[in-house]
Nucleic acid binder design. Structure first.
Length: 549
RNA sequence: UCCGGCGUAGCUCAAUGGCAGAGCAAACGGCUGUUAACCGUUAGGUUACUGGUUCGAGUCCAGUCGCCGGAGCCA
């Protein structure tokens, strides 16, 4: 009885272990049962298995140990692998022996639901949860998949600096760090360094933490997140897009191949009365295995967005017939009198910035046909047409993504809304292209300051409201144009000399992109009805005013 | 920074301006192929904080703090 059984990780237990004595080293997830019999749910970080302990079959000393341990006690259990009598393709352990490393009786996280605040204060323990640990295993697999994908295609990993002397795009707010008397910033992108690195290595990627000091508090934002950025010499925008969709398809394939138990753990934690079967739930990922993904030009999305806004407005009016809409100038109009055309007319009379329509709906007090008595209200969605030259808001990206069952590329944005390094879109004769949708607009609908010129950039928008997952572009390789753009964006030229230097010596066309690991992982792990919050996708999230533990 | 919501037992949540409640967790007992097991008993409170209105405030008002969601911006 003193011989030690071979240690196995739970996930590795298979048919070859049947009737074999093995050792599991881990923690106690739960302990249903009681007098005479316990079911020890064991977890070791790779998976879960239950060991059945029967009082009649073990020594009194062993039974006492089992009887006393509480949830999250650390234990080593020897047992004989048996087929689960009820669940097909599952195994269980016939208990042989337990060694208690630490007995725990007051684990703070219970078996029922908890609130966000409590869970976040206990993030160091929440990580152990079934859903949380499954998500982290998938994140790890994505790391591996991406490394394989890039190395298989002849890319080298470089590591770009985290302390940087200036902003990459100037617009975003950065974290300042005192650097022995100087001020430097935490990196928000390794792109400019990657562009230099391709001069040495041709095709590179970097992968590290990225910092954004924006005061965003949404389910898509972290202040510290992990971003992979790729850069390749002699890639144009279309090479870039093809590379991206192949990478996403490859990664999804890897997850479906290797992470089914983890996806199942995530699915099983969904508590809903009418939840889909596991197969149906996983099926949402399968379309993304097939390339190419749909592509749209920015200009082509405007009609789509406006059609959706009009539909939303109509729904809003039907749901809240007595709602009012307020313009910034203070005038009030009855909502039911405002047609889409009237809204468009009002909008045309002012600029985008001036037009700040907002609606507030509330059930009338004299109208008490609703016995609940609860006051219904809803904020008005964006109640104006989207005009060429505007940047997308989060709801716009959501609705574009919702049109497709797989990620979609949106490309060729107005030059005015993108960074300095985007290459101009040129026609065959080398002239800048005016976007056809812009060109077809009547004069009154062309926003002031918009040229109609576009750039060779693309975003990849996830289906099911995941939002932007990838931002990429062909980089400006016309040295003169690049100098102009640096000046036009009022960037500190001194700090950019080294970057511009790379254009002077062996300048080549090149492209690249960045993908946020957490947003991608959240998209893989969650669906429309089962969203994964970005704070669940990294061990210790850093969010606005929240950096503990 | 702005807009909206929330803050009651260790946890999740109830409570017309009128005695502070339930489930889970904990302790004790019962039951047993359990799937967030189940049943019984016990214990558990400065209703976030400060001030105000009121005969009376968890509830209404003002402020402060904390949390959540969203907007802008972005991956």
């Amino acid at each position: 009885m003193s011989e030690t059984a071979p240690h196995v990780r739970i996930r590795a237990i298979g048919p070859e272990h049947l009737a074999q004595r093995v050792q599991v080293r881990g923690w106690l997830r739960n302990k249903p049962g009681g007098k005479g019999r316990y079911f020890l749910w064991l977890r070791d970080g790779s998976g879960e298995i239950q060991a059945i302990v029967e009082e009649a079959k073990v020594s009194p000393e062993q039974w006492q140990l089992v009887d006393e341990i509480g949830i999250e006690s650390s234990i080593v259990v020897d047992g004989i692998v048996r087929a689960h009598p009820k669940n097909e393709d599952e195994y269980e352990l016939e208990f042989q022996r337990i060694r208690v490393i630490q007995s725990v009786s007051d684990y703070p996280i219970g078996k029922k639901e908890h609130g966000t605040e409590f869970l976040m204060k206990n993030r160091h323990l929440w990580l152990r949860g079934k859903r949380q640990s499954a998500i982290l295993r998938i994140r790890s697999e994505i790391h591996k998949a991406w490394a394989d994908f890039f190395h298989d295609r002849g890319f080298f990993r470089v590591d770009t600096p985290i302390f940087t002397p200036n902003a990459c795009e100037g617009t975003t707010t950065l974290f300042e760090v005192e650097y022995h008397g100087d001020t430097v910033y935490l990196s928000q992108s390794g792109q400019l360094y990657n562009e230099a690195d391709i001069g040495a290595l041709g095709q590179v990627y970097c992968f590290g933490p990225t910092f954004r000091a924006e005061k965003s508090k949404t389910r898509r934002h972290l202040l510290e997140f992990w971003m992979l950025e790729m850069e390749a010499a002699y890639y144009d925008m279309h090479d870039n897009i093809r590379f991206q969709e192949e990478m996403i398809a490859f990664t999804v394939g890897r997850i479906l191949e290797r992470c089914m138990p983890d996806l199942h753990d995530i699915w099983s934690a969904v508590r809903s009365d009418d939840k889909r079967s596991f197969e149906d739930w996983v099926a949402r990922l399968r379309p993304s295995l097939a390339t190419p993904y749909p592509r749209m030009r920015y200009g082509e999305t405007i009609e789509l967005i406006n059609g959706e806004r009009e539909r939303y407005l109509q729904e809003y009016q039907e749901q809240f017939p007595k709602a009012t809409i307020a313009f910034e100038d203070g005038s009030l109009r009855a909502m039911k009198k405002l047609t889409w055309d009237e809204l468009r007319e009002a909008w045309l009379a002012c600029t985008i910035k001036e037009f700040q329509a907002s609606g507030k709906a509330a059930a009338a007090s004299d109208d008490d046909d609703d016995d609940s008595g609860a006051e219904k209200s809803a904020a008005l969605p964006a109640a104006r047409p989207f005009r060429w030259g505007e940047d997308y808001g989060a709801p716009d990206e959501t609705l574009i993504g919702a049109q497709f069952d797989r990620p979609v590329f949106v490309s060729n944005f107005p030059i005015e809304i993108k960074g300095f390094y985007f290459k101009d879109e040129l026609d065959d004769s080398g002239e800048r292209v005016i976007d056809p949708v812009f060109a077809a607009l009547p004069e009154g609908l062309k926003e002031e300051g918009m040229s109609g010129y576009t750039v060779m950039g693309s975003d990849l928008i996830g289906s099911e409201g995941a939002g932007e997952m990838i931002g990429g572009s062909q980089r400006e390789d016309d040295t003169e144009r690049l100098f102009e753009k640096v000046r036009h964006h009022q960037l500190p030229e001194d700090e950019f000399q080294w970057y511009l230097d790379c254009r002077r010596f062996g300048n080549v066309p090149h492209s690249g992109f960045g993908i946020g690991l957490e947003r991608f992982t959240a998209w893989v792990c969650g669906g429309t009805d089962t969203p994964v919050h970005i704070r669940e996708v990294i061990t210790f999230p850093r969010m606005l005013h929240q950096y503990r533990p």
